[in-house]
Structures are given as C-alpha cells and as structure tokens.
C-alpha cells in the first residue's frame, strides 16, 4: 500500500510527459509508477547509488541549472545521512527542490531502530527556508505534487507508506498549514496530531459520541504553520492533547507549546509521542505493537482523551 507515494509521483510523472523540466534523483529507490518513465525518459531518473550525500549534492547542482528537482530516497537516511548537505546546499542557498522521503515513524517495523523515522521533523524544523509537509492524506500528496512544479524554496515531503486516508483540503488549510478534521459542538478538548496519527485520532473520536460532541481534531501537516491561526483555533479549549509518532523532544507537541507560549496563552498541553530518552526497547514487533509501547495505539489515545474529559 503506497497511496500517498503514488498520488505524489503520478502527478510528477504526468508533468514530465507534459513537458515539465523535472528530474528525479534517486538513491536506489524507485516505484512501480516510475517504471515506464525510466524507460521513456532515462535521463530524468538520475541514480546516484546508495549515496545520500551525493543524492543531495547532485540534486542541488541540477537545481542550480534551473531544473525542477526531486531528491528521492528512503527515510531516515535522506535526512540523517545527508543533513549537512541539506543544511548547507539546500536550505542555506534556498534552492527550490524537493526532499522526498519515503517512510515515517515505526516503519518498516521489523527493521528496527536504524530504519525508524522518529526525529526527522524535529531536526528539520529548525532549518532555514525549509517547509516540511508531513503528508497525512492522498489529497495533500496531490497538492504537494502541484506545488513541486512551482517552488521558490525547498520543501521536505514526508510520505508514510501506510497513509491512505482522504480528507478535504481547502486553500485556507494550505495557507495555514493545518486543517480541522473534526469540530465538536462543545469545544472542550482539542487534539492536535500529525501524519498517520491524525487518522488514528479521527477513528478514535468517531468511535464515541461523547468524543464527537466534545473533542476537536486538528491535523498539522506543515511546519512551519500559521501560528496565529492555530492559536485562534486552540484558545477556547480547556485542554490540548498532542499526538505524534515522533520523538517528543522538538516535535509537534513542542511546536504547540512554543506557539501558545509565544502568544501568552496558557492551556494545559498533554503530549503523546515517542520518548526514548532513557533507551530503546530491545524487542521487535509490528507498528501497532511499537505504538502501544508508547501509548499511541487507539485504546491508549481514547483513554487519555476520556481522562481529560473527566478531569474537567
């Protein structure tokens, strides 16, 4: 299942066939929807081998010749192995290219920690000139593909292999970097989530009428986001629960804290995420198993929301 990846790449492939000067630079990663393109336009699919530093540097050089460039490979290696190149070539020089990373969170689950993508957004959030898209549905993938063709600065596109949801995406949402997935009649709690956790939280809220009545859900898909607009959405609730399949330090919850603090808004925030500051589990398991270890499975999220409601 790679709906978001295909939604993004199919738009890019179409653009190339339509005459757009787009180049995909890849570090040993392809996709079925690229197969025909690689035959018809071999020059547009540039292989650098398993060499992420070369990936970013070559992509940067191509971008400097005026081409629309997508640097594409598996996360977390795209970000972590080549961070120096991302920082100095892409961000500092404000090159209009796409960093397309396939993979998010505890995936692939059986590969273990080396392959988990838990800190990429946390690290990149401090980069200059970079906009991050944590793709949380197919429509957003399509939007980002269109944006790819008209970039003025770099973007990092984080594609989760398992995200296949489809939510409404308005121009206002795109401008703000987040969207309200559910608005409750009585706004008591606001859940703020990102990536696949937005779908998980949505399923949790839909499963109970008291949640539907009292809990808002906001999907933050872009970093940075419109801070003032987010404050406006959050300021009337009495508790905020942030949910992310990322490390807590510097992640979504931190971003929400910073935003509220800067605005002088003091609302309790409970952060749900991955805390591995005291070490890693020595066991393997499914993505669901890993999520459960950190209280990020649906039952655990429901319990946290329920307790927050009853604490009122």
């Amino acid at each position: 299942m790679n709906e978001c990846r295909d939604a993004y790449l199919k738009e890019i492939v179409k653009a190339i066939y339509d005459g757009e000067d787009v180049y995909l630079v890849a570090a040993d990663l392809a996709a079925p929807c690229l197969d025909k393109l690689r035959e018809d336009y071999p020059q547009r699919y540039v292989s650098v081998g398993i060499a992420e530093q070369s990936l970013i540097a070559v992509a940067s050089g191509l971008a400097l010749t005026g081409k629309k460039v997508i640097a594409y490979t598996s996360n977390p290696f795209l970000v972590f192995r080549a961070f120096d190149q991302i920082r100095n070539c892409v961000c500092a020089m404000k090159l209009p290219l796409v960093l397309l990373g396939l993979g998010a969170g505890f995936t692939p689950p059986d590969y273990g920690f080396t392959h988990f993508i838990l800190e990429d957004i946390n690290i990149l959030r401090g980069s200059t000139e970079l906009t991050i898209y944590n793709v949380s549905d197919v429509n957003l993938a399509g939007y980002v593909a269109q944006k790819t063709l008209n970039l003025s600065s770099p973007i990092y596109v984080r594609i989760d292999r398992l995200v296949d949801a489809e939510y409404e995406l308005t121009t206002n949402d795109v401008d703000r970097g987040f969207r309200v997935l559910h608005k409750a009649v009585n706004k008591k709690i606001c859940v703020v989530s990102t990536g696949i956790m937005s779908t998980e939280c949505f399923e949790v809220i839909k499963s109970r009428q008291d949640f539907l009545n009292n809990v808002d859900l906001i999907d933050v898909f872009s970093f940075p986001f419109d801070e003032k607009a987010l404050v406006d959405e959050l300021k009337n609730c009495y508790k905020i629960v942030t949910v992310e399949e990322m490390r807590l330090q510097g992640g979504l919850g931190s971003a929400v804290f910073e935003t509220l603090g800067d605005a002088g808004i003091y609302i309790p925030v409970q952060r749900l995420g991955v805390d591995i500051s005291r070490g890693l589990s020595s066991h393997y398991g499914s993505r669901e198993w890993h999520l459960k270890q950190f209280g990020l499975d649906r039952n655990s999220i429901a319990e946290k929301i329920e307790k927050s409601l009853s604490d009122r």
């Binding site: 180049y23 540097a57 070559v58 191509l62 400097l64 010749t65 120096d84």
Partner: peptide, 25 residues
C-alpha cells in the same frame, strides 16, 4: 559565485549535478 560551499566534500557533488544538467540540455 556559482556555488557557496564551506562544508568540505559538498562542492564536487554539486558540480556533478551542474555538469549533468548542462550535459542533458
């Protein structure tokens, strides 16, 4: 200035990308 390096090991890859793009054109 056609490219601003600083961190060693980066510039050659960028030069490769430039050369590839110009050759393709």
């Amino acid at each position: 200035v056609d490219f601003a390096g600083g961190s060693l090991g980066i510039g050659l890859g960028v030069a490769c990308g430039m050369a590839y793009g110009n050759k393709a054109d």
